[in-house]
Design a protein around this nucleic acid. Sequence first.
DNA 1: ACCGTTCTCCGAACAGTGTTCGAACTTCGA
DNA 2: TCGAAGTTCGAACACTGTTCGGAGAACGGT
Lengths: 225, 225
Amino acid sequence: MRASTESRRDRQRRELVAEIIAVACRQLDEGGPGNVSWRGVAREVGMNPASLYTYFASLDDLFTALITESFHALAGAVGQAFDDSAGAEPVDRLLACVRAYRAWAVAHPRRFNLIWTDQLPGYAAPPEGPTVTAEQAVYRPFLLAVGETEGRGDRLAEFAALPTGDQHRLLGLFGTLHGLVSLEINSHLAPGLVDGEALIVDRMTHALRHVHPPRDSSSAASPDQ
Amino acid sequence: MRASTESRRDRQRRELVAEIIAVACRQLDEGGPGNVSWRGVAREVGMNPASLYTYFASLDDLFTALITESFHALAGAVGQAFDDSAGAEPVDRLLACVRAYRAWAVAHPRRFNLIWTDQLPGYAAPPEGPTVTAEQAVYRPFLLAVGETEGRGDRLAEFAALPTGDQHRLLGLFGTLHGLVSLEINSHLAPGLVDGEALIVDRMTHALRHVHPPRDSSSAASPDQ
DNA sequence: ACCGTTCTCCGAACAGTGTTCGAACTTCGA
DNA sequence: TCGAAGTTCGAACACTGTTCGGAGAACGGT
């Protein structure tokens, strides 16, 4: 509608918010969450600490912005790998997403830890908030890729509507990827002894060969919990 | 040797160190790493903040103690499950360790995040330090239990000496467990929709059925990377 | 039992933090 | 043009981790 009627104040505000987030993001990458400080950000953008409160209500608010921003970046990296591998073998397409997930984590370990583990004292992500929708954007390419490997199209995209068995299979797959990446970027993979990328690709391809649901045999197993 | 010649100062020091760690541990459990403060601990044990420096060189030092302490607690919980299930079916024994690992994480999520993810600004665990040996104590019961399920005894206990294929299989197993537990305690498992314990036990039993090395069939597959 | 060394504890201080308040100043929409 | 809204700032408050110097107590050796 009135997209053209953006006052110079509105534009300046938008740019300043972006710069603040960028500065905070850099401080985060350099020294972790403990390194991003309100006064430090204000110093770097060249204004009084009190003025920052015009744009963010508190330090927790700034971190919330960093979290959603990082979720979007991760989702973008995985989504890009998914798009770029269109037409490839379904398994290779999923593996492309796997590599993209790991590559982003290796490149931005602080951001990765920030979005996946609770690090702030009293912080709790608001349900239906922007962080959860950004998080789901990360899962989406994986759901689509796995759906392709099983010839089920995008029938897995609506995770909440799936039967428990499918949910478990998908979460097991993603949990393996996430766990190994987590261990690697936090230096728990015997650095110098284990090759992270080789390990992750190896286990994910292995898991893909056995994760498919049983077609017809052994239907006597317990259907669910 | 001179174990009996413990001066009252030595005893008092030992007890005070234990109390300091206990207080800090409680503050950690209540509000995460950002909630444990030097002055807060001093306040709670009833002495001047400067006096604390008699027992710990810095806040990072205190956190190092918390990390090793938490590693020992986790290793103790898993080891206890391993010991208590002596004589049971090997698979059940491993599942007992799995449940113990998850149960401890659910009971102490802040400590779990503290030991597995880098959260302190400039902190780096000293190699050959007490934290890494405490960490290996966590892996040990799992290595022994998996060795049992494969009828290989404790031949997997010396992880670094294993061929790459075995290392990958073991890390894949532990990575799945660790990743799913991590997702659960950080509220990424669609709380109220997915049962964490059921999911983890389900995926670990599934993985155990397919993780064994190929005996004789399909030996034409690529042996290693 | 003494004495010198060592350890323990404390008050004060320094630099840094997140946040609030009130007052100036600028920009906006009508 | 005028009132309202938005922006910036300095000062202040209550914190934080850490250092320093001194006072007092407990220790080991003679």
